[in-house]
Design a protein around this nucleic acid. Structure first.
Length: 279
DNA sequence: CTATGGCCCTGGTTGC
DNA sequence: TGCAACCAGGGCCATA
């Protein structure tokens, strides 16, 4: 499900259910979900610890832990394509796709993931995992001036660059397509050929798109993404290009086209987003 | 530094 | 109807 708005929604909605709770155990049903960590290492890290905060960095859900009132590492969860976190009553059946269950002193946190790409593991500190991430697009480091300068320094195509978590952290395929359309920029445009004015526009549209999507609790267009409360998000109703191939552009009427960029489905209105002259 | 392709997985949709 | 190919919101890794 998982781009910044969906992960943010997950963290926000899960927080009130698990903050302050103590971890009683951890049951691993699919070991590779731990991403190379052993069940023992995960267990040693989390069992007996108390959850103090739930937040988000990039597309990671971060669960801070403490022991005896002192910081004691973090549980890191990445939803990848089909991951979900839900906090439930212990008696409720989490279904066949539960990969990790973490019983708490009240309730239980389940990590559910059909495609098994997701990750759920313990880290004593965050430095290593977060070392290569770019700025948060809704954070104070992500300014229009920063983006303008950063684009000028890169020769890559805009879309793959914006999808690169080391450049800006949290955007995914949907919101990049949406933000580029709203900015009037073609996904194949070379970053260093984006004029300063357009870079500012892109900055504003990235922030607006993400903010509006968070307000609507993310996007749901198939059975996969649901909030931890089980409700679908509603931002999919606002899509301007994503999933709208062969339909008319909402601003100019031209037919939305879909093609592949960097192995990702890419949606564009060629009138609103003129193709670059060379490549 | 940049681009490309394979891979990890399962299930739903599409096309013959 | 049956079935195989293809596709999907992510990201890592090897290769050129």
């Amino acid at each position: 499900m998982p781009e910044l708005p969906e992960v943010e929604t997950t963290a926000r909605l899960i927080a009130p259910h698990i903050t302050g709770r103590r971890v009683k155990a951890v049951d691993v049903h699919w070991e590779r979900t731990l991403g190379g960590q052993s069940p023992r290492e995960l267990e040693d890290g989390v069992v007996g610890a108390r959850i103090t905060r739930v937040w988000r960095r990039a597309k990671w859900v971060v669960i801070d832990l403490e022991r005896r009132k002192r910081p004691a590492g973090h549980l890191l969860v990445h939803l990848r394509m089909t991951g979900r976190l839900i906090a439930k009553d212990k008696s409720l059946d989490p279904g066949p796709y539960v990969r990790v269950s973490m019983p708490l002193d009240r309730g239980v946190l389940h990590f559910i993931d059909v495609r098994k790409f997701g990750r759920f593991h313990y880290r004593a500190d965050l430095a290593q995992v977060f070392a290569k991430l770019g700025p948060e697009p809704l954070g104070e480091d992500f300014t229009a001036d920063w983006l303008r300068a950063a684009l000028r320094a890169r020769k890559r195509m805009l879309k793959p660059l914006l999808l690169d978590q080391g450049f800006v952290a949290g955007l995914g395929n949907i919101y990049v397509d949406e933000a580029l359309h709203r900015s009037g920029l073609h996904p194949l445009r070379r970053a260093d050929r984006v004029p300063a004015k357009a870079a500012r526009r892109l900055h504003g549209e990235i922030q607006a798109t993400l903010t509006e999507a968070i307000e609507r609790e993310g996007s749901s267009f198939d059975k996969f993404y649901r909030t931890p409360e089980g409700q679908p998000g509603s931002y999919q109703h606002q899509f301007l290009v994503y999933g709208r191939e062969d339909k008319p552009c909402r601003s100019c009427g031209r037919t939305i086209r879909k093609f592949v960029v960097g192995q990702r489905g890419t949606h564009v209105c060629t009138r609103c987003q003129p193709a670059p002259r060379s490549v």
